[in-house]
């Protein structure tokens, strides 16, 4: 009886979570995989078409541009947000300034605001009556200045990237700060007494101590940048033309505007594969770097 009781309790505690999780995440992924090989016309599945969806997606210039834009988002996340986050965390951690709690509180604020609000706010900031535009007009004495970068085929992503930097840098700052606080303060003191330079402290103590969490953050940043949708949708909706299209928008368009569920699913699978591939790549780099340090 107690044995049965234990097994039953185990399942009672575990299964509700497991069933919801399997039903809503794992099962649909499998369905997605199957659907990605099917052809759809006017809301109806008309049969299997092998790799046609994948081929038509990968050869579509709009998808290629989306992919490139996602790569840019990834680069700004991994090479912008994370290093800036480390710098901010370090400046706060060394207690060179007073009011570290105040700075932390203020800088973290954007993480609590929804992407939609952030997108619309920054659209206003860059608009002809925005603070950015007005400010530039004041310094340059050019009352007709307007932000034109949005229309640029090459650089239309730049405002989006800057906003992403604004939105998420402090998330990494907070994560790194929490980890810096786990380094015993005696380590810093000993280094300072030995007359170690700040750069030595950073390279020999801080970065090795943070290496694992830098890896975790990179994984977070990569999977986050491949899924970005809200901010881009609310800020530019992929426009003008398709200059700021991202993969998730491309997916949205095929599934919800054209009701081509086959093609939409194929985009999903491509995103999953990219995500797994890139994370394994980062994992490999991390393992190599670990070995070098040891």
């Amino acid at each position: 009886m107690p044995r049965l009781n234990k097994r039953a309790s185990y399942l009672t505690l575990l299964l509700p979570a497991f069933i919801i999780y399997i039903g809503i995440i794992i099962f649909p992924i499998l369905v997605s995989f199957g659907l990605s090989f099917t052809e759809w016309k006017r809301f109806k599945m008309t049969g299997f078409n092998g790799l046609d969806n994948y081929i038509s997606i990968l050869t579509d210039p709009v998808f290629q541009r989306s992919l490139w834009n996602n790569v840019q988002i990834m680069l700004i996340s991994v090479l912008g947000q994370i290093p800036l986050g480390i710098i901010l965390a370090y400046l706060l951690h060394r207690k060179w300034v007073r009011g570290t709690k105040f700075f932390e509180f203020m800088i973290f604020l954007p993480v609590t605001i929804s992407s939609v609000v952030i997108a619309l706010l920054w659209n206003r900031v860059f608009s002809p009556v925005g603070i950015y535009t007005t400010f530039v007009r004041m310094i340059t004495h050019n009352p007709d200045y307007v932000v034109k970068i949005f229309e640029s085929e090459k650089f239309a992503m730049i405002p989006v990237l800057l906003v992403l930097l604004w939105q998420y840098t402090s998330l990494y700052m907070v994560i790194f700060l929490a980890n810096l606080q786990r380094i015993p303060s005696s380590v810093f003191e000993a280094a300072l007494i030995d007359g170690a330079k700040e750069s030595t402290i950073i390279w020999k103590i801080v970065l090795p101590a943070l290496s694992t969490v830098i890896f975790t953050c990179s994984v977070l940043a990569i999977s986050g940048s491949l899924k970005s949708f809200d901010l881009v949708y609310a800020m530019t909706a992929g426009g003008p033309v398709n200059y700021t299209y991202v993969m998730a928008l491309y997916l949205y368009q095929h599934t919800f505007t054209f009701h081509n569920y086959g093609k939409g699913s194929a985009v999903s699978i491509i995103i999953v594969l990219l995500s797994v591939g890139l994370i394994s790549l980062v994992r490999g780099i991390y393992d190599k770097a670990q070995k070098k340090f040891e």
């Binding site: 809503i24 992924i29 659907l35 999977s223 998730a248 997916l251 599934t255 569920y261 999903s268 699978i269």
Partner: peptide, 15 residues
């Protein structure tokens, strides 16, 4: 599940 994002299941979920 940590690696799976909403947009990888949104099409089948909608269906």
């Amino acid at each position: 599940g940590l690696l799976i994002t909403v947009n990888s299941v949104i099409t089948p979920l909608f269906i």
